Simulated assay, not measured.
Amino acid sequence: MSSDQLTVTVTDGFVPVIDLSFRDSTEGRTLIAESIGNALESSGFFIIVGHGVSSELVGRMFTATNAFFKLPQEEKDLVASRPGVSGYRRAGGTLARSLDQETPPDLCETFAAHVTGELSDEERTQLGDEWASWTHKNIWPKSPTDFQDAWQEYMAAMGDLAADLMRLFALALGLNENFFDDKFDHHGSSVAVNYYPPQVEPPLPGQLRRGPHTDFGSLTILYQEDDRGGLQVLQGKDNWRDVSAIPGSFVVNIGDLMALWTGGRWVSTMHRVTNPQRGDTSSRLTIPFFYLPNHDASIEPLRPFRDSPAVERFDTVTVSEWVSRKVQKIFS
């Protein structure tokens, strides 16, 4: 396969679209890894097609989740998050606080579940402190009846895709393809869906569906509705760029821990979700999967990047310490 057979297009000059359907060959993986590395040095974001995740599974996940959020409030509250339990939240917190920025609360509801949420109580107590949400038990709604099955299948599919993306990341960094495998062999990843209800009243000044923030972990895989916009990525100091919703695609971006691992060579980029135009009372649903390393993994710049001028900005930290610190700020 020659390099011109690999589909790497650019939709807006900032966020490329990368076709993963060539990743079964050595040459294909090399070319894809190179394209990923270029994207993560510039915007920290790229869009993937040819990823192999079943459209039928994505459709079931979206349909069941959207139906849940349309239930009466009292039914959703039956599976509300509480100490030690992950589930539904009427308010998704204030993401800008994770960067010590004060804004009004984000205009969204959330539902979260973790791959570790089905472990025994004893196993979960070994996974970190009280602010680390991967220590929580999952709680599932009874309606829609296929909600739990769809979510668990989706989390498994996203875990497989994320693991292979990390292998491509390793290739892009000039490392052994399996370098990151043992950093994720008991990962605490999650799906944390954002439901943006219709805005029937004007937002407060500075209030958005999701305020400006960076993600916390290694990578995020996001499904967004094809006919709904709102996701924006910051280019430079003040240029917010729309990220296209391409049918059948996922948006991938790295988080703070991946930027730390690369000593700042790859960027964890600020992004936000804007409000609809006044008079648009449609809702919106996005489904992010957050791929987190093992809770006790120590994160520090990898040896090839320790001489980077940016390294002095990073402290060695465990995954549990970093994520717990961020979550506490959001919901404090």
Rank of each mutant, 00 (worst) to 15 (best):
F14K: 09
R167H: 01
D77C: 11
A170V: 06
A113L: 09
T7I: 14
Q73W: 10
E27M: 06
D185M: 13
H136C: 14
D296G: 13
L285D: 04
T65W: 03
D106L: 01
E225L: 07
E321H: 05
D296W: 11
G128H: 04
L302K: 06
W261Y: 03
D307Y: 09
K326A: 08
R284A: 05
D129V: 15
D164I: 05
G13L: 11
F289G: 11
Y291V: 07
A39I: 13
P202F: 00
D296L: 10
P304A: 01
T145D: 15
L175R: 10
E225T: 06
E118S: 14
L168E: 01
Q126K: 11
W261I: 04
L31H: 10
V243F: 08
S86F: 03
F147G: 00
Q207L: 04
Y196R: 10
K76V: 03
A67W: 06
G229N: 09
V49G: 09
G59H: 13
L171D: 01
H187W: 08
K142A: 14
S3W: 05
W134M: 11
I287W: 02
G188V: 00
S249E: 13
A80I: 11
V273K: 01
S43K: 07
A245S: 14
T7L: 12
D242M: 08
E122L: 09
D164T: 15
G188Q: 00
A162S: 15
D24V: 07
E177P: 01
K76P: 00
T103D: 04
L78Y: 03
F180A: 09
